[in-house]
Design a protein around this nucleic acid. Structure first.
Lengths: 193, 193
DNA sequence: AAATATACGGAGGAATCCTCCGTTTCACAA
DNA sequence: TTGTGAAACGGAGGATTCCTCCGTATATTT
């Protein structure tokens, strides 16, 4: 019996925090161009840190992705919150989709991360897409409540379609096409009147 | 100057043909469940053939994909030809999209193959998506000519969107969602009247 | 300063990719 | 048939990446 709580856990070590930051910076740098399939060894090397240290901080590739892109996901979620107050719900929806595409356009690595997060066995960063789907779902729900769009498309479905549309393509004209298709998607969801 | 054609090229060797077949069969079997990232060593092993033989017949992973899925692509192209004669052009379009999704639903490995074919540096099986985009483009063009859908979406763009929407997802309800989104896409493309 | 919990680095086994090269087999002609 | 050279074969092995194990080093606490 006695203390099932082992210890009053001490303060985290300074070198651990420092290395975590270094790894995140290195990962951002390495994933920047969309090379999200870069070797983790390379990331560790770039960070000037042993490979074991990387794995200790981020047990899986997805965990690293999640940490790297958490901030951007946060931003998108916040944006959705902000857009909830906009008068025109459909316009808000369109704006959010555009923001999502924009972000993806700059952080191409994130798309792959998202894809992996959805693509099977990744319970870890599935949370990332869950949150995005939730944010998008809220926007959809509002437009649905106003009877402006059909009600049988979930945030998750829409997000998958959007991400899917972005995931391919390396060409420069990439963004425009994605925006266009996103708009088409919204057009298709609007109830005819 | 006689024969610029070097030789009256002899008949291909029997063992070469046999091994090619074996490799294709093995690949079909191995890729069946969508495990299109299976190791090529495994495919060679399954075929009971040396790894070098695999690489000799299919220099790249994409070349193997293309060979495996050529038949299905042929079918879709043929279907598009057939649907060109259907009275309702938009209905034909919808039917083709559905067929594409159906095929993908059974041969999940093909999606990954397609994705890879689009995803950068794969000149080899880019042909596969080119042909599909062409087939789809023809259907679109017809509907455009009849002024039934907007004219600024290309076959390639639409295919990318569709494939993207399919590429994620492992859940059983997968197909229905994809069909729904494809319909939404078409709805969004129809000119309002 | 000593104790100890915590973190570090890198060696190294396993898997995969792909090439090189010596050996074997087949198609064709004599 | 049999000989011969072109064509195909197999698998060893170097390179890369993944991930774990474990001995060493260091920060925090007493």
């Amino acid at each position: 019996m006695g203390r099932t709580v082992p210890k009053a856990s001490r303060k985290p070590r300074a070198d651990a925090l420092r290395n975590r930051e270094r790894l995140l910076d290195a990962a951002k740098r390495v994933f920047a161009g969309g090379a999200s399939d870069a070797s983790l060894d390379a990331v560790a090397r770039e960070a000037g840190v042993g490979i074991a240290t990387l794995y200790r901080h981020f047990p899986t590739r997805e965990a690293l992705y999640e940490a790297v892109y958490r901030r951007e996901v946060d931003e998108l979620v916040a944006l959705a919150d902000g857009l909830a107050g906009v008068p025109d719900s459909v316009a808000g929806l369109r704006r959010w989709l555009r923001a999502m595409i924009d972000l993806v356009a700059t952080k191409k690595g994130m798309v792959a991360a998202l894809a992996i997060s959805v693509d099977a066995k990744s319970a870890v960063s599935a949370r990332m897409s869950k949150r995005l789907a939730g944010a998008l779902g809220a926007l959809l729900d509002r437009a649905i409540a106003e009877k402006r769009i059909r009600r049988d498309v979930s945030g998750e479905e829409m997000l998958l379609a959007l991400v899917g549309m972005c995931i391919l393509r390396d060409q420069p004209d990439w963004r425009e096409g994605a925006v266009k298709m996103a708009d088409v998607l919204v057009d298709g969801m609007m109830v005819k009147k």
